[in-house]
Nucleic acid binder design. Structure first.
Lengths: 341, 341
DNA sequence: ATTAAATACACAAACGTTTGTGTGATATTT
DNA sequence: AAATATCACACAAACGTTTGTGTATTTAAT
């Protein structure tokens, strides 16, 4: 544990002032060539490392982006954070990460921590139970820009990245319809999520396009837990208007739903077919893969969120930012090659 | 964007000194009751938030733990980081996260960033290609403790958490042997990884226990990519001493290996059986699940790494820490219930 | 030769907080 | 009543860096 080298120390050893050392290191023109090389040589020799905490403090900027998401174990989010991180790193930013685990209290506490750490910005995908948004207001008032992605609150005055679930669901529906399915069910997510609302909207849109009537019993909601998915699947399959195909909220839901269907002695892809959302790698290894999965481009969503953030960061803090940046990403239905290999 | 409230500002408004405000806020005994309540009331009213960057700087402590891992998309690591984060949060620490993507240069750069950010400690699972450890030496010299986990360099003078792969592999071998398998192959990972070396050791141990001879052709290495796994699988299955069971480096390798075997018209779990490592949830949904998977308790590994870190952080920085903490976690072979449902 | 401009540096303040020390005013002890 | 202890606060320094301003010395321009 050697003594940590500071600018002051270098200054003392060379008998010059700290300000000159600072300027020499940053190649300021007002420093003479000899002094410059002297300083730079000694700095390297002593293994000088600038104390970022001092710089952060002095510059009122931490080059840190807070990222809060529900859970990294969902591949969607781990992929999204990669998008954020990659772009962040390219721009000298680092990621301060926190998982809410869909716990509102923890989310609030994390926002608070981020605020105290003086992150330069916050990118967040909210917990599925979050309905009070005051903690975001608080951090915004503090001058820290907030960008939402994927799990976005239903508010007007926010920046966000959002995948066009409506069109994705319509695509999914039409895909199944063209395969000849007449009765198409849907296992949806928690009703308070915009993601769920838009799936319903996309579903209905497809019906309207085809001049079909809406049967509410074909859509069931669940809280995404395995148990609830099982229940939802059974409910759908026992429905009087029994679907021959189901649109699952995402790939995880699909896996459980297919399992449930198999347990009911149904042949997957024969008696009952599935389409889901996310298009995770697991689709290619699953016992019961979906016919297709709607790719929501998680990496791109993360990257886009960071793009918005960089724009906001470039802005003058005092500008009146009455405008909000919203990026809509078009999802893509990926038909899987399920030639069982 | 209101003016940010500082201690100085509060002091000015109350006509007292900043030091008194500071002490009042931290409930120092030398401050009178009236002043204390006055300060605390005004602080709340003005929405005062302590500037952590200033505190970090002043206290030479950031309450931030750097975590570098190869890739969050591997569930093993996303689970491990959850273990780290949970324990960190309980102790007022936050996680600064970075992914190396198995790129040595990026790993080095991340270590450097962490160093500059003055993280209080670094927890890392190294890239699979890392063979030069000088960047870790550098950050250690800087007084920042480093704890390794799972992907650990083969060095003596380090703190680490490590899963007893040797015993795990022996367990896996014996499990297959008791099922009657005579010729058991192994698809191993990159040879420079300790994880790979120990798998070989565990494999050999099992042989010795059973008084069997070692056939080197039954172990093939791969770089974990899908393509390489396919190649390795084919090599094993075309071997003159053809295995009836294969121990895969991990569940991802298993998925590709099973796919490769299926492509070769082999019946999984009949012509060829698998055991793997990690025991990811995907095992329960896979088209070709392994008979068993060795759980390496990733969450626990992460948590243990953070435990070591907390111990190191509690130590006096100037103590001579010639002792190194090593935690070995016993893995557990989980036999899967593959009654196809 | 005189003045102006450029060079190369030093000085000092500031960022917001914590903490050691100093100091009057009460309160307590003898 | 004098000496001492306690209280409640103010003052100042420090953490390491950046940056605006001041100032000798040198160089260039007239």
């Amino acid at each position: 544990m050697e003594k940590v080298i500071t600018i002051k120390e270098i200054a003392k050893r060379l008998n010059i002032s700290p300000s000159s050392v600072s300027r020499a290191l940053s190649n300021h023109k007002s420093i003479g060539l000899k002094t410059k090389t002297d300083v730079q040589r000694l700095a390297k020799e002593l293994n000088y490392e600038p104390n970022q905490t001092a710089i952060f403090f002095q510059q009122r900027k931490t080059f840190t982006i807070g990222v809060i998401l529900p859970s990294l174990s969902e591949e969607f989010f781990s992929s999204a954070i990669s998008g954020i991180e990659d772009l962040a790193n390219e721009n000298k930013y680092t990621v301060l990460m926190g998982q809410s685990h869909d716990d509102v209290e923890r989310e609030k506490q994390l926002v608070d921590t981020m605020k105290n750490h003086r992150v330069d910005g916050l990118i967040i995908s909210i917990s599925k139970n979050t309905e009070d948004y005051s903690h975001f207001e608080a951090i915004k008032k503090f001058g820290i820009p907030v960008v939402f992605f994927d799990r976005v609150p239903d508010l007007k005055d926010i920046h966000y990245v959002w995948c066009n679930i409506i069109s994705g669901t319509t695509q999914a529906y039409n895909f199944l319809k063209e395969l000849g399915h007449q009765s198409i069910g849907m296992i949806n997510g928690p009703t308070n999520l915009l993601a769920s609302k838009e799936r319903v909207e996309g579903y209905k849109n497809a019906l309207i396009q085809s001049n079909l009537n809406f049967d509410p019993s074909l859509i069931v909601s669940c809280n995404l837990s395995t148990k609830d998915v099982f229940k939802a699947t059974e409910e759908l399959l026992n429905n009087t208007n029994k679907p021959t195909a189901i649109i699952a909220f995402n790939d995880y839901v699909l896996l459980d739903a297919a399992k449930a269907a198999a347990k009911m002695k149904l042949k997957i892809n024969k008696d009952i077919s599935f389409v889901s959302f996310a298009h995770l790698p697991i689709c290619h290894y699953a016992a019961h893969p979906p016919l297709a999965s709607v790719d929501q481009f998680s990496y791109k969503q993360g990257k886009s969120a960071m793009e918005i953030m960089l724009q906001l960061l470039a802005k003058d803090r005092n500008e009146n930012n009455e405008s909000y940046i919203k990026i809509i990403i078009e999802p893509k239905l990926i038909v899987l090659d399920n030639t069982i290999d």
